[in-house]
Nucleic acid binder design. Structure first.
Length: 492
RNA sequence: GCGGCUGUAGUCUAAUUUGGUUAGGACCUAGGCCUUCCAAGCCUAUGAUCCGGGUUCAAAUCCCGGCGGCCGCACCA
């Protein structure tokens, strides 16, 4: 049994996530987060906010998901967010037209496709290119676009659900820039849903048709690609995959060797590395990959992806792109509005470095990498989530449901919830069973109210990873819990 | 989207090959008895044949279609 099958089974059993619209048979590419999963997801997002927004004094916005067509024409998504496809008239096989034609024709003539559909048809006809499967003739080439189309208002003005959260930030740029004090740099982040109508989504959370992104757009003066806090991360090491060779490199080296476009990108790479370590991805299972020119999206000048190894193979979980002034220039051209700004006496269009992370893919990778099999010590499967990511910060259990133990335990639960902790309370079943259930969803700590509690107001705190226990005062639960979460302490 | 395999309680599974009584079990969940710290035991309860059509006296079982899943091909901005 593959690890992802195991994870999926546990996900269903413990309400991490499950297929959407199940009474109607489910719909591929859509998943719902259950009560446990959503707590973990929120904690991933919360840590991202802390590390990528608040610590740097950046701004966060929340923009619309339904996007009028002209916006996405400007961004290039209507034209190129998808692939040209030709279909065999005989056997119905669909082939991606540009790469296929390039393979069999352009390449041998040393040409590249000019981006026009009719020239693909022309080349197919002139070159007598046939279906690779049955030798049949191809029909005309057409664009298969990956966006969900919809319409706005009574006349259904053409629109799409956004394929990325970024465009809402670009279109809000002038207002955001004013609010920011008309100066650069300026960074705007956003967490939200995006939509891609995948042809055949598989691999569960790894390829969804509706998914959550955490994106950050860093606007800067192209004449200064420096980053104020760069010195703090200069020595930070990370693994880079270059021409399929992996190498340890520091953020400083990335800039020196011009692997990262500038200090800004290098800073974010270093930050991402830290972030991934904190959420529980082992360092030897993740690396950055520098994309080659032909792998990059239409808007990007330089691209570095984060890739995480999983049982599905390598999963791309972050895209870092140097988008230059592409988006703002395009929106200026299409809308007719001047989107340039004045800085230091010059009129410029800011450049943008973008950090785009997929929350669901990361969530899935965390589940895989934190999953632990049964052992002699622990006769059940469990999750070794770092406390910052765990669905509940702690569980509270009365040793038994009588003699007022349950009442006391509920009081402690209420007190800790009041302090802002996520607390799971359970009183049914034996205490051992409840510890096991807590482990199964990765709760790192459990407070147990026993008969001594009634005498001296102390409880035991039990650590998930080694089952170690110590007795502490009820009054200290709050501070001990806070300290353990901060230090990531999961054994006594 | 194409081809192959496939779909039974919340989860895993038996019965499908060879159509035939009340679709069996385990885990989970909830309640009870018991129990003073790592899935104890006993009792009780809830709960399923993916959807639609067909063949048949009779369909979980056979056939067709849809939906979902897995594998391969293609696709993965």
């Amino acid at each position: 049994m593959q690890l992802h099958e195991k994870i999926f089974e546990l996900a269903l059993k413990r309400s991490f996530f499950f297929p959407s619209y199940e009474p109607y048979g489910g719909t591929a590419g859509f998943y719902d987060y259950g009560p446990v999963g959503v707590l973990i997801k929120h904690k991933i997002e919360r840590l991202w906010r802390k590390m990528f927004i608040k610590s740097e004094g950046f701004h966060e916005v929340e923009t619309s998901t339904v996007t009028p067509e002209p916006v996405l024409v400007a961004s290039g998504h209507v034209e190129s967010f998808g692939d040209p496809v030709v279909e065999c008239t005989k056997c119905g096989t669909k082939v991606r037209a540009d790469t296929f034609v390039e393979d069999v024709h352009y390449r041998m003539h040393g040409e590249k496709w000019d981006g026009r559909l009719d020239s693909l048809d022309q080349t197919i006809r002139d070159g007598e290119i046939k279906c690779p499967r049955c030798g049949g003739l191809f029909g005309p080439a057409y664009m298969f676009n990956l966006m969900f189309k919809t319409g706005i208002g009574g006349d259904l003005a053409p629109a799409y659900t956004r394929p990325e959260t970024a465009q809402g930030i670009f279109t809000a740029f002038p207002r955001l820039f004013r609010n920011h004090g008309t100066r650069l740099p300026m960074a705007i982040g956003q967490i939200g849903r995006s939509y891609r109508n995948e042809i055949s989504p598989r691999k569960g959370l790894v390829r969804m048709r509706e998914f959550t992104q955490m994106e950050l757009e860093y606007f800067f003066d192209p004449e200064s690609g420096g980053y104020e806090g760069f010195r703090d991360v200069e020595k930070q090491k990370m693994t880079m995959a270059l021409d399929s060779k992996k190498e340890e490199m520091s953020a400083g080296e990335l800039v020196e060797k011009k692997i990262a476009s500038n200090q800004i990108m290098s800073f974010f790479l270093a930050r991402e590395w830290e972030f991934y370590k904190k959420v529980g991805i082992p360092e030897d299972r993740m690396y950055f990959r520098v994309l080659g020119e032909n792998e990059m999206p239409h808007y990007s000048k330089a691209n570095i992806d984060m890739e995480v190894e999983s049982s599905f193979g390598v999963v791309e979980t972050i895209g870092n792109a140097y988008r230059t002034d592409f988006d703002l220039s395009q929106h200026a051209k299409t809308s007719g509005k001047d989107l340039s700004v004045h800085v230091e006496g010059r009129k410029i269009i800011p450049h943008v470095v973008e950090v785009s992370m997929g929350v669901d893919r990361l969530f899935f990778c965390i589940l895989e990498h934190c999953y632990r099999e049964k052992t002699k010590e622990k006769d059940w499967e469990w999750f070794d989530f770092p406390p910052v990511i765990a669905p509940y910060h702690a569980a509270v259990f009365p040793l038994m449901r009588k003699d007022g133990l349950d009442k006391k335990a509920k009081e402690l639960t209420g007190m800790l919830r009041e302090k802002g902790f996520d607390i799971a309370y359970r009183s049914s079943g034996s205490i051992g069973r409840r510890y096991a259930r807590g482990d199964e969803i990765g709760i790192p700590f459990a407070f147990t109210v026993d008969y001594d509690t009634l005498k001296d107001d102390t409880v035991t705190i039990r650590y998930r990873n080694d089952g170690g226990q110590e007795r502490i005062k009820i009054a200290d639960c709050d501070s001990v819990l806070r300290k353990n979460i901060q230090e990531g302490k999961v054994t006594l």
